[in-house]
């Protein structure tokens, strides 16, 4: 038994090292090389630049809480919300008092800011990653009157902007309809400048 184990040691160690180089170095490097040729923007994180400054990533949400912007979903990352170097959810159970209290507070804040509109569930719950870039179309439309007032824009123009930014289900069936909040707010900034 001991001799058999000993005879398997060389293949074990050498095979491990060979596979480490093959799957740990060659494979990710090959993928990185091909990715940079085929999809250079995505490979570097789909970063968005404005006037030569990086303002975010297409896929990473940002916190918004002012009257002139559409709000993002609540984020449970610490210490600050939407901390893109420490992702995570709240992990609060459905009956946890902390969850029920923060949901009640958020629902009330949403109603107050948006003329008594009932809060869609995504606006009172923290996302899984804490970096969710999207909100539901329902949540975006409910905020449109507030944002229009905050920007001094006609409500119809803001509603139209939201509807133009709604992404439907992918291939018609996958996922859920959604609105990218950063893209929506950047478009809103442009609209406000044009006015």
């Amino acid at each position: 038994m001991f001799k058999t184990s000993l005879s398997q040691c060389r293949p074990a160690v050498v095979m491990l090292l060979v596979l480490t180089v093959l799957t740990g170095l060659a494979y990710p490097s090959l993928v990185a090389g091909l990715a940079h040729i085929l999809f250079p923007r995505q490979a570097e994180g789909s970063l968005i630049e404005k006037d030569g400054v990086i303002v975010g990533s297409e896929f990473i949400g940002q916190p918004f809480s002012g009257d002139g912007y559409f709000w993002s979903r609540p984020s449970a990352t610490s210490p600050n919300p939407y901390n893109a170097s420490s992702s995570g959810g709240s992990n609060l159970g459905p009956a946890n008092e902390d969850l029920l209290k923060s949901a009640a507070d958020r629902a009330q804040a949403f109603r107050k800011a948006n003329g008594g509109a009932q809060a869609p569930v995504d606006m009172v719950t923290a996302s899984a990653s804490g970096l969710d870039p999207h909100i539901t179309p329902a949540a975006a439309l409910a905020q449109a009157p507030r944002v229009a007032a905050g920007r001094g824009l006609p409500e119809e123009a803001v509603r139209g902007l939201v509807l133009s930014k709604v992404e439907g289900r992918q291939l018609g069936i996958l996922g859920e309809p959604r609105v990218n909040v950063l893209a929506l707010n950047m478009a809103l900034d442009l609209l406000a400048v044009k006015k």
Partner: peptide, 18 residues
């Protein structure tokens, strides 16, 4: 429709997945 939402228990879930 226009004001679509996934609904349900959304704590700890992402909007794109619902």
């Amino acid at each position: 429709g226009a004001a679509a939402q996934a609904g349900g228990n959304m704590e700890g879930k992402e909007a794109r997945f619902g």
